[in-house]
């Protein structure tokens, strides 16, 4: 087989009718059952507009990542072929890649600037899943996929399994499903695990970065279970006040630019504004999720050591507004 011509179905595009149908079913279920989540028309339309923009930006800029992967493919001596076990292995390793890119997306502000829009909804429903970035190309996180290509996985296969990963993550953006059977919760990312990831409660910050397999969070120490007595409060630590998709897409990039151009910052500060976690300030007045957790534990000492608030997750409390 000529691997240069290898193609796979564009599964995300093929899933669009399913996305639409599932959203309408979830909306109707919430209306009839009067539970299982919330919808707000402008929030939902903003999320869908972000989804459309994501597809458009992928169409316009996708050649950058694909071109980079094809260049790597030409220089690598390895070729694992296209058998089913290679595709399955590629899926698992690409999910590991997703975990780390997602973790960078929360801990490196340059990447957060792209990812923040996904967390900018105060709702958690199937439309939230489609609230995707328009600026992912500019994070250069395609580099994290380079090892897969160099190991001999064909770029088309990598993009194919990446599409499957994205589709898997659609259904977990719901409050309509409680907890899954224990073995599923142990291995897979589920609505419960991902609700935690979208929560802005201090204990839920910077947790559960998984795409498909929650085992990565368990392995790397970022897993936090959803507690029965603490429902996630969705959105950003400090929410943005807009439904305008353009502002949703670019607000954090603008914030970085403003931080760079403020008086008195050095080139080192500018670099750190891009690579430090969100909330970092050059004058020491900032504080990220670690400081927020520390402050929460100090105000609620009985929560110390409970999930998400273990000593290793707490930073220093700088006593200044975040």
């Amino acid at each position: 087989m000529d691997l240069a011509q290898l193609t796979y179905p564009d599964v995300v595009t093929l899933a669009v009718p399913f996305f639409v149908a599932a959203i309408l079913i979830e909306m109707t279920w919430i209306f009839i059952a009067n539970r299982g989540g919330r919808y707000e028309v402008r929030d939902a339309m903003t999320s869908l507009a972000m989804g459309v923009g994501n597809v458009a930006s992928g169409t316009l800029l996708g050649f950058v990542a694909f071109g980079f992967f094809m260049w790597l493919w030409r220089i690598t001596p390895l070729d694992l072929g296209t058998s089913w076990w290679v595709i399955a292995l590629c899926f698992v390793l690409d999910d590991l890649r997703y975990y780390w890119v997602h973790r960078f997306g929360h801990r490196v502000r340059w990447v957060w600037a792209s990812h923040v829009n996904h967390h900018s909804s105060q709702h958690y429903n199937l439309t939230t899943a489609l609230r995707q970035t328009w600026t992912g190309t500019f994070t250069f996180m395609m580099i994290v996929r380079a090892p897969l290509v160099l190991m001999g996985f064909h770029p088309a296969m990598i993009l194919f399994v990446g599409g499957l990963n994205l589709i898997y993550q659609f259904w977990i953006h719901t409050e309509a499903i409680g907890k899954m059977p224990r073995w599923v919760e142990a291995v897979m990312n589920t609505p419960s695990h991902h609700r935690v990831h979208h929560g802005r409660n201090p204990r839920y910050l910077d947790a559960n970065y998984a795409g498909v397999f929650i085992i990565w969070d368990r392995m790397f120490g970022t897993f936090v279970p959803e507690l029965e007595d603490e429902r996630p409060d969705y959105g950003l630590v400090h929410n943005i006040g807009t439904f305008n998709p353009l502002r949703v897409a670019f607000h954090e990039w603008v914030a970085i630019f403003r931080d760079w151009t403020q008086p008195g910052v050095t080139w080192r500060d500018r670099f750190l504004y891009a690579v430090m976690p969100p909330g970092w300030r050059h004058d020491g007045t900032g504080g990220g999720s670690d400081a927020l957790k520390a402050r929460y534990v100090e105000a609620n000492p009985d929560t110390a050591g409970t999930p998400g608030l273990e000593p290793g997750r707490l930073g220093s409390d700088r006593r200044r507004p975040l």
Binding site: E40, G235, F243
Partner: peptide
């Protein structure tokens, strides 16, 4: 201020 069913500050 209220934004739909939520608020911003």
């Amino acid at each position: 201020w209220v934004m739909g069913q939520d608020v911003a500050t």
